[in-house]
Nucleic acid binder design. Sequence first.
DNA 1: TAGATTGTTAATCGATTAACAATC
DNA 2: TAGATTGTTAATCGATTAACAATC
Lengths: 210, 210
Amino acid sequence: MSDKKISTAVIKRLPRYYRYLGELLENDIVRISSNELSQRMGVTASQIRQDLNNFGGFGQQGYGYNVNHLYKEIAKILGLENHYSVIIIGSGNLGQALANYTDFEKRGFVVKGLFDVNPRLVGISVRGMDVQDMDQLKDFVVENNIDIAILTVPKTKAPAIANDLCEWGIRGIWNFAPVDLQISNFDVVVENVHLSESLMTLSYRIKDSY
Amino acid sequence: MSDKKISTAVIKRLPRYYRYLGELLENDIVRISSNELSQRMGVTASQIRQDLNNFGGFGQQGYGYNVNHLYKEIAKILGLENHYSVIIIGSGNLGQALANYTDFEKRGFVVKGLFDVNPRLVGISVRGMDVQDMDQLKDFVVENNIDIAILTVPKTKAPAIANDLCEWGIRGIWNFAPVDLQISNFDVVVENVHLSESLMTLSYRIKDSY
DNA sequence: TAGATTGTTAATCGATTAACAATC
DNA sequence: TAGATTGTTAATCGATTAACAATC
């Protein structure tokens, strides 16, 4: 646990810095100043320096930041040098789509299993794995030390499953169900992807731009 | 275009209010005070009242808010009484998953067509629609007055497609590609869903909770 | 009417930006 | 060394919370 509290605003900007640095790296750019990065990203240089200095002094006066070094440091901050064992609960369209998203594996998130209640889905092969029945879930989570569960189940099912997962020692839940999971275990982290809400925000802004 | 500027923080909270009100409605709850809603949602009553009063006085002193009325008002604010014609560009796993997500249609977002460059996908049927080749895109967008494009294509392809869409009169882009689209047309709204970034945020918080 | 609760103003808090001394 | 650019403090801005008069 880090000592000083980092605001979520800062944390949510880190992956974007990481993405831009990755692109710079692909273009063989060795160093970058906060000022140049700020122009590319459309944020202030001040904000970049403030954000980074929450975690350490990664730059050098008169020079800027070494792209490769900063890229790796942000990976460390984000925990991307770790290896996470992931399961997908709910193997419908979205679950399968996420299972097939190879980018996640590159970042250390390895899908170890898929689950569903639907007998039509149980047994089908997704990315080389057979979808398992939900009654296999507990044993699988415990035996394989699963770190992260991706929840792509209906909103009615999600809360009970989430509670079970917490008891079975999961570390994080990536929740795609349109509910706010009430997790009493402080060691379990929930990150929500509420697609409907994102779409409504788009709708608001379209409407507003008339 | 509304007169006073509403902050994005407020806008992003509206769909969550909408979701909670929908649940209250399902449970036949007729009225609710900002105080009770605040406890259910885990926000302050002050914030709820402030947020809502950006758009009008929907409550009544001594009574609170009529759930049904407020629900409908928020739908109006979010533009959910409108009917949007939607296309999906990129008909891989994620595109198909989104096409099959019936909840969107309930909210007025009607998928009118799917597109892909991949000859293996062109012609397959997704939710009763044949995936079309990308060379059909322009005519389809123009002839069908498409409002919203869902972009589930690789990041290398997204910017050029987005530019074309703007020229062809699209109103909004729901972008799932991990790039920041640079749109010069101020009438076109972009909403990003950066799944990798969401997952990295989860990773950060898992790491941090050790 | 009395009680409850909103709408709204004022106070506080936190996040962003600006400025500049430190230093490479 | 001189120039550039960071790290960091101080100033500003905006968002959240508290308080309360208005009013149903």
